[in-house]
Structure formats: structure tokens, C-alpha cells
Design a protein around this nucleic acid. Sequence first.
DNA 1: ACTTGTGAAGATGTTCACAGCT
DNA 2: AGCTGTGAACATCTTCACAAGT
Lengths: 227, 227
Amino acid sequence: MKFFKVPEPTIMRLSLYSRILEQMEERGIPIISSVELGDAVGINSGVVRKDLSMFGEFGVRGVGYNVRELRDNIRKLLGQDRNWPVIIVGAGHLGSSLAAYPGFTQRGFNIEAIVDSDPALAGTTIQGHPVIDWAGAEQLIKEQGVRMAILAVPPDAVQSVAQRMIDLGIEAILNFSPIILKVPAAKAQVQNVDLTVFFDLMRFTSNLNEQEGLRPQSSSLRGLAVR
Amino acid sequence: MKFFKVPEPTIMRLSLYSRILEQMEERGIPIISSVELGDAVGINSGVVRKDLSMFGEFGVRGVGYNVRELRDNIRKLLGQDRNWPVIIVGAGHLGSSLAAYPGFTQRGFNIEAIVDSDPALAGTTIQGHPVIDWAGAEQLIKEQGVRMAILAVPPDAVQSVAQRMIDLGIEAILNFSPIILKVPAAKAQVQNVDLTVFFDLMRFTSNLNEQEGLRPQSSSLRGLAVR
DNA sequence: ACTTGTGAAGATGTTCACAGCT
DNA sequence: AGCTGTGAACATCTTCACAAGT
């Protein structure tokens, strides 16, 4: 098996392409060009072609890409064509909103359950997904071979919850709490998604714009020294 | 006023530093080195120094950085020291979970209200924040000078809601729906945060790991051609 | 005529290593 | 002795522009 390096930005864009292609297919559009796909996700067409050419030759010169075919290939690349059992930890607002998102199932994730330590919640359902306690989680993870966990728990609980999940055999963790979760790389993979960062990012530019008037957005930001 | 380019990753890391420093201060730690700060956010100390030196000379050679001083400077850089009135659009799960996040207020955002088109919700409160209708939103935005909006609405509503917000004078939009919101740059700034991308990113690596056994995570991913 | 796939050039971001200061 | 600030080397990602294919 021959592996090669793939830029992380490429994977993130594949995810975007995948959704655009889904929409194109629904609308019955058979062919799409790299320019159209690029416009749809807000990037240059060359990036699209580079990204795709990395994994194979999916297009036809002079024509474009077959929408369904490309979608299927990307789905396969991202693993969207298979069923991934997932467990959500934390039945609060964020956990619930993730559980409520329908695109989840469409994209190959299967929410097996939501784990919560509140005994009052165990046995209930949220958006049709059962809420279970830790004992139930242990059983479920073993039985269903769950490998991915989504952490939507309060910041102070993150580290211990992550450890507990790893002990139960979880291999990949997506952490939504505003805490940088660190776990020995050999134990499990962690992806931290810190929403507050996006707020700060947005504000940083607003803050500047205020000082020089609103301007066209550019990918490279500008700063202003403190003194 | 002298502006200079700042890498977007730098801003995102400043946001992380800011929280770590907050924690350090609470624990009464007076001084921190670039190595310690780097470890805390999981990066090389050189990056920390580069990031900070961009905005001024905050440290003391041979000593380190004064925690409180550095925190204050970063707060100022990111605009966390001022009060930013914000409006959340969409009183669903995601909107509610954002409204529930306490760190929001701590970090200089003031959630003025949650706008929702459901008439049954107008007049109620979510997490202490009033839910208002569009008429109320118009008034509030004008009166309070609200400039930032957080969109947590269903995908099909995003584009029209964004337009409506811009018409009401909103200058910065943080879009959480899995749709790439596009707005003329001169009208407003948009930051799209597509959560599904993170899921796909995580799965991509899991998908590969499965084929070659779990490995240490590395920042550069590897791929496998489709054919 | 049109659009892909891709090497090469360019831009951006990161790491290194050491001079400079306490 | 220790840690910052920073130029220079390096790595990574993006853009360009054109040959190749239909």
C-alpha cells in the first residue's frame, strides 16, 4: 500500500466539495467544472484541481467532472460511504444540537447514544437518540465497536472524560470544549475544535476595521502594534 | 497608523494564549516562559515568541513574560477588553448552546438577544437572554449599535437571514450553518465555521489508521489513492 | 474550443539557532 | 545561566501557466 502526504487543508476542502456535489446531484446537474466547484466553495479553480488530482484523475479534459462519480470518489476518500458508529458525551445544549443535526446520518455517522452522568436523563431520548449512563456506555462501545467520541462536556470535565473514553477503547476524540485536550498520541487521536477561537478571530478584524473603516476582506490579516 | 500583515494562525493562537494566561493568573502564577506557554497549547516555543514579537516586546530576556501584563496586552489586541454587543440568530439547539456559554461574557461579548422567527418564542428568555422577533431585532441593533451577528439557523435560511442582518446594519457575521455563506466583501465580513468539516477531518485519519494500525498523530496527513 | 492535470514559481507559515539582554 | 527576539533556512501550501487530452 502506497501512502503519500496530503495537506490538511485539502481534506477540509474535500469535505466542502462533497457537500456541494451532493447539492448538485440533487439538482440533477451531471457535470461540473473546477471553476464552478471552486466558486461554490469560494476558492480558486487551481486549488480544486490540485486537491482532486492528488487522489486520482477524476475529470475529463475539455469537459469537467462527472458529478455523481466525483461525489462517490470523495465519499470513499473521506470514509463517508461507510457507517461510523459514534457516541456523543454530554447531553447539554451543544451535545443536543449535534445530536439534532440530520446531515450527520447522511454523511455516514451513526449516533449510537448520548452519554451523560445525570441519572435523571438516563433512559430518556434526545432527538431520537437514547441517553445512557457510563455503565451503558461501556457496554455499547464494546458491543457496537464504537471508535469515535464527540466530547461536548463542561471544560473541567474534559480531561477525565477523555481518559475514561480511551479506557473504554475509543480511538478518536473530537473535543468541543474550550480546553486543549492532550492525550498521548499512541492512545488516541484528538481533534480540538475551540469555538471561542472563531469569535476572537472575527472580532480581531472587526476591531481593526473600526480603526480604518470597513474594507474588503482578505485572507491575510493585518495587525496593529500595542505600543 | 502603521499596519502590517498578521497570519491568521497567529490570531487563532493568541486566542488560545489568552485563555491559558487567564488560567495562570487565577492560579497566581506571575511569570511564564514561551516554553511553558507553548506546551500548554501544544506548540513549539519559537512559534509563541514569533507570534508575540509581532505586536511588541512583551517579555524580558532571561526571565519570561509577566502573566498579567501579557494577558492584558493580548486582551487588548483581540479586543477582549471592550464590550461587544452581539446578536444570536436562531433559538434552536445550537443558538441556545452558544447563549449558554458563560465564557462568552467573560471574553467581552455581550449577548443582547436571540432572534427567532417563531412567534411562540418571542418574549421568552433563553439562559437569561431575551428572545425577540425581527421587528425587535431591528430596533435593538439600531439602539445598541450591534455590529456582530452569530447565525445558528437552518441551512436553507442562512442566505436570506444574512441578507436581512446586513440590511439592518450588521458588519460581521459568524456563520455556523453547513453552507458557505457568501456576501459582498464590502457589505460585511463573514466567517464560516462548518462543524462537519472537523468530523470529516477526524474520520479521514481514522479511516487511514484502520488500514495501517494506529500511529502517532502528525500534522501532515497521509492519503491513499482511490485506484 | 474547452477544461483537466501538473511542474515550476511564488507566497506564506514554521523551525532553527544564536545574538542580545537581564 | 537563562530566556527573549529575530534573521535565515526550511517546509508547506497556493497560484500560475501551459502541455495534454477530448
